[in-house]
Simulated assay, not measured.
Amino acid sequence: MERTSDAQRYLIGVGSNRRGRHGAPRAEVAAALALLGGTAAPICASAPLGPSSRTFANSAALIASDEAPEALLARLKAIERAFGRRRGRRWGARVIDLDVILWSGGRWRSPRLTIPHPAYRARAFVLAPAAALAPRWRDPASGRTLRQLHARLTKPRAVPRPARTA
């Protein structure tokens, strides 16, 4: 297993919208969080993306590991398989989904993994638990903290007024 020289911190996104051997999606997320260790954010419900119609249970874990990003990804994929995850259609129902969101080493890019996660800045179901765990962690691309990214994404917007015609 490839290792880095010192323990690194990783922020892992955790989600489920299908029953598995641990029970309902919330129980699947709780079991994955227990297996990952570290510090976990509260589990919350979120609407599905894409064609799935099932509500997701989401959370995040802040873990320390001496694994390099690719080695951690391989471990996360093994956990997904052990939970019963099968490859299927994108954004479909899944027993568990584990994503590397951020890494204390900054950016990483390989054919299998991009850190920071490419879509996390636009997903409140990722940013809410992430900001609860590590509010001052800075996004390596924008320099904004997780708290700032979440606030910007969820900030109420004024409804535009219709144009007046004369």
Rank of each mutant, 00 (worst) to 15 (best):
Y10F: 14
P111K: 06
R75D: 06
A41S: 09
R157K: 15
A34K: 14
L133G: 06
D66R: 13
A166Y: 11
A7N: 08
E80P: 10
I43T: 10
L49V: 13
A93I: 06
A34I: 05
V95I: 15
R157W: 10
I115S: 00
T145N: 04
T55E: 14
D99S: 14
L98S: 09
G13P: 08
W91C: 01
S59F: 07
D6G: 00
E28A: 13
G105E: 00
W91R: 02
R121N: 01
L36M: 05
K155H: 07
S65Q: 13
G143P: 12
S46W: 10
V159Y: 04
A24T: 04
A131P: 13
V126K: 09
D6P: 00
A57M: 07
A141T: 12
A60H: 05
G84L: 15
T39N: 03
A134G: 03
G15C: 11
L35E: 06
P48G: 02
E28G: 14
R136H: 15
G88W: 06
S52V: 01
S16I: 09
S59R: 03
E2S: 10
R75E: 10
H117E: 11
W108E: 02
P118F: 09
I12M: 10
A60I: 08
P129S: 05
L153Y: 03
I96V: 15
R26M: 06
S46P: 08
L98K: 08
S59L: 03
A163D: 13
T165S: 10
L35C: 06
S104W: 00
R18E: 13
L133F: 09
P162V: 11
G15R: 04
R121I: 01
R26E: 06
A24Y: 05
S53P: 12
K155S: 05
F83M: 11
M1H: 03
G92L: 08
L62K: 02
A141N: 12
A61V: 06
A82P: 09
H22K: 05
K77H: 12
R164G: 12
F125W: 13
G84A: 13
V159S: 13
D6N: 00
P135N: 15
S53L: 08
L49G: 02
